[in-house]
Design a binder for these strands. Sequence first.
DNA 1: TGCTTGACATAAT
DNA 2: CATTATGCCAAGC
Length: 109
Amino acid sequence: MPGSLREQIYEVVRRIPAGKVATYGQVATLAGARGHARQVGYALHGLPDGADVPWHRVINARGQISLRNSPGSGADQKRLLEAEGVEFDHLERIDLSRFRWRARPMPWE
DNA sequence: TGCTTGACATAAT
DNA sequence: CATTATGCCAAGC
């Protein structure tokens, strides 16, 4: 049912353009829930397999893939991001200075 | 109905 | 920029 925080999170994630990434905190803020970053991850965790939600574009504030700190599970995600033009470094990290999605100049203050 | 867990963020060190 | 400590809230059991 729409209106749920989970559904709101899905909507925000759908707005992330290809080639860009967003942090959990940013998604939470855009979803209208400042500080509920954990819920974003939890919502994505419960995502069905056929959902049209680019969850792979959602990463943690460190610019790394965070599925549970498990490298194997995030290998596929990294590949998807690379296919969209996102660059990774040796530590599997993304340069947020360039790939961070700027939806709206709000949290910058 | 109440306690535990969790794809994290932010501030301080 | 990395690590440690603390806080936030919803979903699961």
